[in-house]
Design a protein around this nucleic acid. Sequence first.
DNA 1: CGTGTGCCCTGACAGC
DNA 2: TGCTGTCAGGGCACAC
Length: 271
Amino acid sequence: MPELPEVETTVRGLAQFLDGQRIERLVLNRPDMRFPFPEGLVQSLTGARVTALGRRAKYGLIHTDRDSTMIFHLGMSGRWRIDPETPDKHDHLVIEAAGHSFALNDPRRFGYVDLVDTAALYDWPTFAVMGPEPLGDELTVEHLRAALKGRRQAIKLLLLDQRVVAGLGNIYVCEALFRAGINPRKAGGRVFRPALERLLPTIRDVLEQSIVDGGSSLRDYAKPDGELGYFATRFQVYGREGEPCVRCDDGVVRRVVQGGRSTWFCPKCQH
DNA sequence: CGTGTGCCCTGACAGC
DNA sequence: TGCTGTCAGGGCACAC
């Protein structure tokens, strides 16, 4: 997916068009994505005015004046296409508003949509157990220490766990651990305060830089207006198996599999 | 409880 | 306008 920076970029892009606008039409081109579209989605949103857009972790939020919020998740391959010139077979949901159309396109359909009462937004089960936003003040070294204490699971996998930190995905966990010089296979409980002091600002740096760059670009990601982002050109370790390490100039980047997903790291300088 | 595995789905690419 | 195998930014259900 779209990790946090891509969702943030997407939400900002949508907000330029949708904020304050009335939803004239909402069309579902199939009954489901990963999960069935919620009951009454079309009826609830047709005619509603968008009051604000937001983001929590990797979830986009479209708030309306009907006291309801549409939550969308982009899965691995989801994106919004704005004013697509031609329809695509993976445009599963289309919103028309303010003379524009917005198609939620997701070939793999790992993404989904839900509709909740805005007042109870953070009671939504996924949000209720989610950890702090990495870019806010809530994420502290103390929080990380408490969340990692005694854990034997690899630090890489714990950082991907949305209950520990909300919004990190495979790319930015690899990049942050690399830049902080932490071995991704180390048990979370053995990553001590000095390393966490390095890790925390590093997480913020990679996410913020990526947002500045407009979201990273892999082959199935584009900004809402179709422009490609370009953080991908700044990856220092992700996807660089066999290349020399740019930190220590001595090691060679390795790829290993953790939890069924690839991790790239430098065995020489990540301890 | 914590931890590990398989799987949902389509598309791109490498190698034959 | 070949085939087959592998991999992909996520997260859930299930087994132990």
